[in-house]
């Protein structure tokens, strides 16, 4: 077991290393292949009045003239050991984990990210609770009442749900519920949980439901399929034959087996969402990780882009790590070799 955990941990770290290298290449190497010079990179960090000499000086100062592996190494070092930046007036500390120092905003990236994590976390966790409960419940009921009106109606809605882009449902629901009826919060509204939990929930209600609807739909479909499959298995027949009450058969035996794949997918979905619910955040103007990523890309703020991609990847990797480990604990069939 311990070796398995260690192996998976090493694997996760390796994965992060590769993601960081690829991200770094995309932004620091690929543009050079298109003809960008060190000065072009440096120019982004300078004011509009920058002269060619200033750009050359800045390029040197920021290390854009160094070989790419050196630049990458410096970035990695910053993540683990922190870094220092010369702002001209003073040497600013960027303590570890220093994912970079935004020269456009003139501040370290990490605190900004930390600032935004609660928004994305609130969005993702709230929505995932709704979709997990809703989706699984509907899926189980549909499976048990297979072919009934409920089943057909639920599955039709679910199919419609997976076919709707979130930026469409989001806008429509805002127009109808917030703008039209005035019963939900407008776009961009967010109150930190610790400040006022009721307001926090009220403000996030519409994004939660919209996002949850999308996922609940696919979870309902998955759960239904899983249930139908397991309920047809021999061991269920055995359980029934033993005279167990039907509710026990369903919850202890059927649901448990059907839920295993759901848990895997849930882990990955949650990880991906925590790394930035880009479309939901931009539709509802929520200032989370996803919105940060898009802003960073649109303004070409390279340190920000590096930081946010790494955080996003970290969430996915950690989520899949946890899922794997849980699996190993819960499901004895998993080989720990």
């Amino acid at each position: 077991m311990v070796t398995y955990i260690i192996r998976r941990l090493i694997g996760a770290l390796l994965m992060l290393a590769i993601v960081s290298m690829v991200t770094f290449s995309i932004f620091f190497v690929v543009p050079r292949m298109a003809g960008a010079t060190s000065e072009d990179f440096a120019n982004r960090y300078l004011g509009k009045a920058a002269t060619a000499e200033m750009a050359a000086v800045a390029a040197e100062k920021l290390g854009f003239n160094d070989p790419v592996p050196v630049q990458y190494g410096r970035w990695i070092k910053g993540v683990f050991a922190g870094a220092e930046y010369d702002t001209g007036a003073s040497i600013e500390q960027c303590p570890a984990p220093c994912f970079g120092y935004s020269f456009v905003k003139r501040q370290p990236v990490w605190p900004e990210l930390v600032d935004r994590i609660p928004v994305t976390l609130s969005l993702a966790v709230g929505a995932s609770v709704i979709w997990l409960i809703g989706g699984v419940a509907v899926g189980v009921l549909s499976a048990l009442k297979r072919g009934s009106f409920f089943d057909r109606a639920a599955m039709s809605v679910a199919l419609a749900g997976v076919s709707l882009p979130i930026f469409f449902t989001g806008i429509v629901s805002l127009v109808v519920f917030s703008y039209g009826m005035g019963i939900t919060a407008p776009g961009g509204a967010y109150t930190p949980f610790e400040e006022n939990p009721a307001e926090w929930a009220y403000n996030l209600l519409l994004p939660w439901i919209t996002l949850a609807f999308l996922y609940a739909a696919s979870y309902a479909r998955l759960t239904r399929a899983g249930m139908l499959e397991t309920m047809g298995e021999d061991y269920i027949r055995t359980a029934r034959a033993k005279g167990l009450p039907e509710s026990t058969v369903i919850s202890r035996h059927g649901l448990r087996a059907a839920l295993t794949p759901i848990v895997t997918i849930f882990g990955l979905d949650l990880g991906l969402l925590l790394g930035g619910a880009v479309l939901t955040e931009s539709t509802f103007s929520l200032k989370g990780i996803g919105d940060y990523a898009v802003q960073a890309i649109m303004t070409n703020d390279l340190p920000k882009i590096m930081g946010v991609t790494m955080v996003a990847a970290l969430f996915v990797v950690v989520a899949s790590l946890i899922v794997d480990l849980l699996y190993a604990v819960v499901d004895p069939r998993v080989r720990l070799g």
């Binding site: 806008i171 127009v175 005035g182 776009g187 539709t283 649109m298």
Partner: peptide, 14 residues
């Protein structure tokens, strides 16, 4: 392009 949300504080009837 990105701040696309909509708004309604006090919109409509209120």
């Amino acid at each position: 392009v990105l701040t696309v949300g909509l708004a309604a504080c006090g919109g409509g009837s209120s």
